[in-house]
């Protein structure tokens, strides 16, 4: 193995077809001519070091963070389209509107795992804010559809009956 390594380092364009024994034959093939590991590595690290690439990451993560806020106009449009009547499609839409942001909030940490840097906290906050705005929109929709138990009538079933203080009886005189 060490011999082979030495060979590749010594001569860049040489090919060694000679096998010393059978054992050697089974081992890994040599790299194609003109290819060296070190060069490839050097090339990639060079690329990352470029200053604007970092900038791109931040931009990308901001995109991610602002995504929920960008959805707001679309959601508004969907809400308008769905109308206020209670039937299967509007209910499904409203359900999606509520469940998606909540799901996203629960997976917040995972979403931002790949992103690090000075802006991470701000991005998280903006993402969070956007999802909250979406949730509020959905709740507003529920409210306008009358799905939220905000009226006294919604709690009527739980109102206990009044207990009576005085007991009375009587009627016509018997005699």
């Amino acid at each position: 193995m060490s011999v082979q390594k030495l060979n590749t380092k010594r001569f860049k364009w040489t090919l060694d077809f000679s096998y010393k024994n059978k054992q050697e034959r089974s081992i890994e093939l040599a790299s194609p001519p003109g290819y060296t590991h070190g060069v490839a590595l050097v090339h990639s690290t060079d690329h990352s070091r470029e200053s604007h690439s970092n900038h791109l990451i931040i931009k990308k993560s901001w995109d991610l963070a602002l995504g929920p806020l960008k959805q707001v106009p679309m959601n508004l449009f969907i809400m308008y389209m769905a109308g206020n009547s209670i039937s299967i499609f509007p209910i499904m839409m409203v359900g999606m509107l509520i469940i998606r942001p909540i799901k996203a909030l629960f997976t917040l940490q995972q979403t931002f795992k790949v992103i690090e840097g000075t802006h991470a906290f701000g991005q998280k906050f903006v993402f969070f804010l956007g999802q909250i705005v979406n949730i509020f929109l959905a709740l507003y929709k529920c409210q306008s559809m009358g799905l939220l138990p905000t009226h006294a009538s919604d709690w009527l079933a739980f109102v206990e009956s009044q207990t009576r203080v005085e007991y009375s009886g009587g009627g016509f005189k018997y005699t």
Binding site: L156, A157, S161, R164
Partner: peptide, 23 residues
């Protein structure tokens, strides 16, 4: 007699409470 519902739901979703005077 027992009265289960204490009121009546109106069109505007407010409640009109029943006057349940056992006497």
């Amino acid at each position: 007699e027992r009265v289960h519902s204490q009121g009546r739901v109106l069109g505007d979703r407010s409640v009109l409470y029943k006057y349940i005077n056992p006497n």
